[in-house]
């Protein structure tokens, strides 16, 4: 058994997730929000790998899932940045407080 208990990893992941959530919610800049979301995804990956290591070490699922999450994160980043660029081009801003078209 490793000398670092599972809960340490989980706590780090939880804190990272919360910080990411804060970044995603508090930032004015759309890119900042995206960065926050990336942090949250990373936190999830830490959880996945930690669970693999401590609970399901003989299997593959934990790591495989983490790879899938990384893939999805990459795809999400690509699409999100494309959206941000499109918005920037049409509205000349990436400030989410000025983007309120959802209301109508």
């Amino acid at each position: 058994m490793s000398s670092v208990p599972l809960s340490w990893y989980l706590i780090v992941a939880a804190l990272l997730f919360s910080i990411g959530a804060y970044g995603a919610l508090a930032r004015r800049n759309a890119i900042g929000i995206l960065m926050g979301i990336e942090l949250m995804l990373n936190a999830v990956n830490i959880n996945l790998v930690a669970f693999w290591r401590y609970i399901e070490v003989t299997g593959l699922a934990g790591q495989l899932f983490a790879v899938i999450v990384i893939t999805v994160a990459a795809a999400e980043a690509a699409v999100a940045l494309a959206l941000i660029l499109a918005i920037y081009r049409t509205r000349d801003t990436v400030n989410v407080e000025e983007i309120d078209l959802l209301k109508w």
């Binding site: 995603a24 919610l25 929000i33 989410v96 959802l102």
Partner: peptide, 14 residues
């Protein structure tokens, strides 16, 4: 509540 702004909705989600 219906501001149309993304961060507000996200906050409600959280």
């Amino acid at each position: 509540i219906q501001t149309g702004r993304l961060p507000n909705y996200l906050a409600i989600l959280v």
